[in-house]
Design a protein around this nucleic acid. Sequence first.
DNA 1: TAAAATTAGGTTGTGCACAATTTAATTTTA
DNA 2: TAAAATTAAATTGTGCACAACCTAATTTTA
Lengths: 149, 149
Amino acid sequence: MNAEEFLKLENQLCFAIYACSREITRLYRPILDDLELTYPQFLTLAVLWEHQRLTVKEISQHLQLDSGTLTPMLKRMEAMGVLERKRASEDERKVYIELTNKGIHLKKKAIQLPEKCIPHFGLSEHQYKELLASMQQLIENLQQVTRLT
Amino acid sequence: MNAEEFLKLENQLCFAIYACSREITRLYRPILDDLELTYPQFLTLAVLWEHQRLTVKEISQHLQLDSGTLTPMLKRMEAMGVLERKRASEDERKVYIELTNKGIHLKKKAIQLPEKCIPHFGLSEHQYKELLASMQQLIENLQQVTRLT
DNA sequence: TAAAATTAGGTTGTGCACAATTTAATTTTA
DNA sequence: TAAAATTAAATTGTGCACAACCTAATTTTA
């Protein structure tokens, strides 16, 4: 396949990934609406369900989002009462993010998200894991290029 | 894998796809900057390089973007001089989008995008096609759920 | 240890992405 | 054929996503 062919939409892996990402979000939306969360907010909670307390920087590393995206989103989530932002006393530059009880308990409801949605992917568990591994490998390959300091 | 496991970020195919999409855009950005295009603008041109003249609705179907996204973007692209918006005379509701010479000629430069970037994916042509097919199949499966009128 | 460099988070501005609504044109149907 | 329904595009408003820049705290190093 030559470069000209790669310009066609149907041959662009990048477009398929971009379109797929939005399509999954569309599938998730009714349940996210029920949780009163956006998808990036859900991801933020997912990180915090695993790690309890993280700095903004650490969340930024997990989600690959910068402070320009995170700061306003975390403020909105604080206003919603799902988490708290606490300036670290040992290093005044850092801000710790901690879940409130409301944020912790959202996990129970959030379990519906994978439960109800993943079956619609139409993939066997094996196919799911294969595809997940391929995507993670691709991310790693890309980061080697984009993250060269 | 149970629903609880699926909530972990590392097991979420959706997160991998979302992160990968942004990572590829990051890889493309230096070349897109050179073309003075954003990624969605590049996609719009890619559709028009294949189809010459399309209505907003048709572009919307190719890219799965609604008029709320397309209308302002197409206006910006018109202001940049890469395309023209023409109200159809046979049906005044429709707006045709046509490339200008500038828009047509951008294709030559744009060939660098796949040429320079796809090698960084670190995939063989076979792997590229496999992954592309998997993503397209997944999109189709998802659309059967999200597009039920 | 004072100046320089680095780091963490915040701010500002632009451009999607999408829901909800509006407007005007066209098609359907009673 | 007039009213109702549908369609195409535009508009409004919210929330990311990210570049560029700023501020203050901490670390490095001369």
